[in-house]
Design a protein around this nucleic acid. Sequence first.
DNA 1: ATACCAATCAACAGTGTGTTGAGTGGAATC
DNA 2: GATTCCACTCAACACACTGTTGATTGGTAT
Lengths: 195, 195
Amino acid sequence: MASIYDEMVEKTKEKIQQSFLQLLKEKNFMKVSVRDITEAAEINRGTFYLHYLDKYDLLDQMEERLLSDLEKHLERLQPDVLLEEAEKGNISMHAVEVFRYIQLNAERFQVFLGENNHIGFHKRLKQFFVEHFMDKMMKNENFFKGVAVPQDYLSSFATSAFLGLIEQWLENGLAETPSEMAEMYIQIIFFIKNL
Amino acid sequence: MASIYDEMVEKTKEKIQQSFLQLLKEKNFMKVSVRDITEAAEINRGTFYLHYLDKYDLLDQMEERLLSDLEKHLERLQPDVLLEEAEKGNISMHAVEVFRYIQLNAERFQVFLGENNHIGFHKRLKQFFVEHFMDKMMKNENFFKGVAVPQDYLSSFATSAFLGLIEQWLENGLAETPSEMAEMYIQIIFFIKNL
DNA sequence: ATACCAATCAACAGTGTGTTGAGTGGAATC
DNA sequence: GATTCCACTCAACACACTGTTGATTGGTAT
């Protein structure tokens, strides 16, 4: 059903997104104009507006795509299974998959989380992890049972900690392998749990 | 030495910053124009450029000020003393001071860390805590000694976790008192340390 | 052949930018 | 008391980016 027109559109959007990503490595989101994008993509400026409302919409769609793909990897990750495996000294395959996905899309994560750019991707990502992972985690296990700190604070605390790990990884230029990261993550989670 | 001219300049800059802050509550940083700012501040648009290069410079100066003031509170906080006190069940007065400073400047922190605004304040704040606090913390104590995870990852992890706590506090509209926050923070730090 | 569709092109009014040069009024200096 | 100084005002400037429009091109499907 993918007509040649659909492919044409896909190709154009791909060019736009790639050029945009490239530009975001150099400049602020704010300093990147639609003009810049379309010139880099070698398309007419008017064409941009056939696909996106404005550059906010473009960024939003790209972020949305990144997160919805991440969701697919994350939903396979069962907190209870993960912890069970961890107790046996194994690393859940699905946990590695999550880090592998991040590695595969490192360019996007780096740019969207980079200090110049991103408007709210950090918050968005954090919210995402709280909803799709941490909440499950905290409900399915007697997590943090030893600490008299409200749920929402613990959730924010743990999620931010996890994000901090990922940010450091991205900043280090992905020097570690996804397996190493998964192991590191398990260690920390486990370490926090084991009180 | 504060001539009447200096006061005049201070007053104008104050008006600009206040109007800017107010506008950032409503709109994106990007959607706030210099025009908007000067109209709200009831000054001539040209006057803005007598004090700031552009709106980036304005934001930068405001962030810088917030962090350099925070630094003064933070440098009094000795990690070893903090942990010593914690062992005795006390909360370090200086730890409370840090949260009190954040409470006092909540408006700014909320806006700069808000999802719409801020370009890199989160990263800046994180970097700030890593340098001014976490590094000291980790060197002065045998922290995380039970976990085989590299220093930089632990540092990023712990700092993000701490920031997560603060973000949640700001999001909750500062429902807790600075003392309660300090206690919560000590509990988590202590909890992590006590392995 | 003809209707379709993505993309092109040129032109549009509107808005914001940063800068300039002349002018205002109060404060400090002589 | 005249003059200089200074923050600020005001109007105007060229320039850049925006989002939209209507006409056009060149392949593709009917």
